[in-house]
Design a protein around this nucleic acid. Structure first.
Length: 473
RNA sequence: GGUCCGUUCGUCUAUCGGUUAGGACACCAGGUUUUCAACCUGGGAAGAGGGGUUCAACUCCCCUACGGACUGCCA
């Protein structure tokens, strides 16, 4: 029994290695986030490798979608994106090296033979573990037919994985098969390719979904066969849907790009995702920089977690409020593109920027922010929706006219406006809300807006008076 | 079927053998308030079940139940 030794003293190198068969899955996004957080927090390197050895299912569109997803999340990788397929010659080289070392062998069984073996074994309720008859065959007996290169895995003893998350996990070797490393067409299998690439890329920490935990045992055999040092493994639990079942289409948004299109700010997304399966005491709201300083793989939990949109929204609201105005406008514009909405005019952008201070702390997502920004995005005449039309009728026109008159000589500050509004409200025996509602309606044509003071301050004296005149008329 | 992993409030989690089991989201009740958001106060809410070990177990061990992963010339 050999316990793999981690490599604690080397500079940290992590990687994210998705296969390009679709969009970037939300679970994959979190895996990437953990790798990024760990590398960045430890002065290390975060690499990106596209596992495109399955030529049937890999598409350039999927690769592009994955890169877009990572970019949106703000997970920047170091160096060039590595294509696994492009490294196939090196994989084949290692397979032949293992052959030469006697830790692999050529297997001439056809896929039909293996399939019928499995079918028979299953019918007889025997183990379907396939043991190739070529394992110990003399080279002289080799036929001149296609072959695969199989790992010559030890048949006795056990393989131990020292996992930073899962602890020490032991596998009995007689339950592991001689996996195929090189297919009969000379291309590598995933099992070989990951190990070779991780080794060649100098990856020190493999942080990936725990669906790979079983694979780790077999992969560690390749490391041993090649006399390579194993990385630190960290197999993290998967994310489940709100019902606790495996995340699937029926749970709604799966791709990280969908979250962008729903208008969640990326900083909030990172914060929320990092708290799924990982925690730092009671900290809930934090920046990625803080998380980098705190993040340790040993603090990752072992149980799968579920997506909770309510909490996501809450965290996003906090990040929105804490955001820089110009940066928020920038992200908002990216959201509009992602969601397929019309672009803003320059005037709208300027208005948004001026209004941002009072918009950002009342919105959790960009659609909400835009909704509340209606007063600055619209232009005269401001159309009143049903609710605000009613509010407009709730007060007599003469009061609004009096207000308009007084605003013409107002000192245009919150205090100045406040003095006028409260004076008019009390003079007419109205609660402040009774006056604010029609004013809000006149200014925005909506019932849900920032405060009336902020709106007046943002659109200015002339525009305020014009809108009031429109409403009275 | 076999192997491996998991199971603390509804949800995300803290706890690392001794706590009135803490926090956050959500929820409920109050408060603040010009709408919304935010905010303040309070409340209900948890160790899957059963056996051990121990003076003491959510924490360690075993069994069961329930979830999940793997069991491919997919990744």
């Amino acid at each position: 029994m050999s316990v793999p030794t981690p490599q604690p003293n080397k500079p940290v190198v992590t990687r994210f290695a998705p296969s390009p068969t679709g969009y970037l899955h939300i679970g994959g996004g979190r895996t990437a986030l953990f790798n990024w957080l760990y590398a960045r927090g430890h002065g290390g390197t975060f690499l990106l490798r596209i596992e495109d050895t399955d030529r049937e299912r890999s598409t350039p569109e999927a690769t592009a979608a994955i890169l877009r997803g990572l970019e949106w999340l703000g997970l920047d990788w170091d160096g060039d994106v590595v294509s696994q397929f492009a490294r196939k010659d090196r994989h084949a080289e290692v397979a032949h090296d293992m052959l030469a070392r006697g830790s692999a062998y050529k297997c001439f069984c056809t896929q039909e033979e293996i399939e019928s073996f499995r079918a028979a074994a299953e019918a007889a309720k025997r183990s379907t573990l396939f043991i190739s008859p070529w394992r110990d065959a003399e080279p002289a007996t080799h036929p001149d037919t296609p072959f695969v290169i199989r790992m010559k895995a030890p048949r006795t003893g056990q393989t131990v994985i020292a996992d930073a998350v899962q602890g020490t996990v032991t596998f009995q070797n007689d339950l592991l098969d001689d996996m195929v490393c090189l297919r009969s067409d000379g291309t590598p299998t995933y099992m070989l390719a990951v190990v070779v690439d991780d080794h060649d890329m100098g990856v020190t920490h493999v942080i990936r979904g725990d669906d790979h935990l079983n694979n780790a045992a077999r992969q560690s055999m390749i490391y041993t066969a090649m006399d390579w040092e194993v990385p630190v493994w960290a197999h993290i639990p998967l994310i489940h849907g709100p019902d606790g079942k495996k995340l699937s289409k029926r749970h709604g948004a799966l791709g990280v790009e969908e979250y962008q299109a729903m208008g969640y700010p990326a900083a909030g997304m990172r914060n929320y995702l990092s708290r799924l399966g990982w925690s730092h005491g009671d900290d809930e709201f934090f920046t990625s920089e803080q998380a980098m300083g705190w993040f340790e793989v040993t603090d990752i939990g072992r149980a799968p977690s579920r997506l909770d949109f309510k909490k996501l929204e809450h965290i996003c609201g906090l990040h929105m409020a804490a955001g820089n105005d110009a940066a928020l406008l920038h992200e908002l514009k990216a959201y509009l593109v992602a969601a397929g909405h019309l672009a803003l005019t320059e005037a709208q952008e300027n208005g948004l920027l001026r209004a941002m201070y009072c918009l950002k702390d009342r919105a959790k997502t960009f659609p909400e922010l835009i909704d509340k920004a209606h007063f600055v995005l619209t232009s005269r005449p401001v159309l009143a929706d049903a609710g605000s039309a009613k509010a407009l009728d709730s007060v007599s026109r003469s009061i609004l006219q009096e207000l308009t008159l007084q605003l013409q000589t107002a000192i245009w500050t919150k205090e100045g406006l406040e003095a006028i509004l409260t004076a008019i409200a009390t003079a007419n025996g109205l609660g402040f809300g009774k006056l604010a509602a029609p004013l809000r309606a006149a200014l925005a044509g909506r019932t849900v807006t920032p405060s009336v003071y902020d709106m007046m301050l943002v659109i200015g004296q002339d525009e305020t008076i014009s809108r009031l005149n429109d409403a009275v008329a």
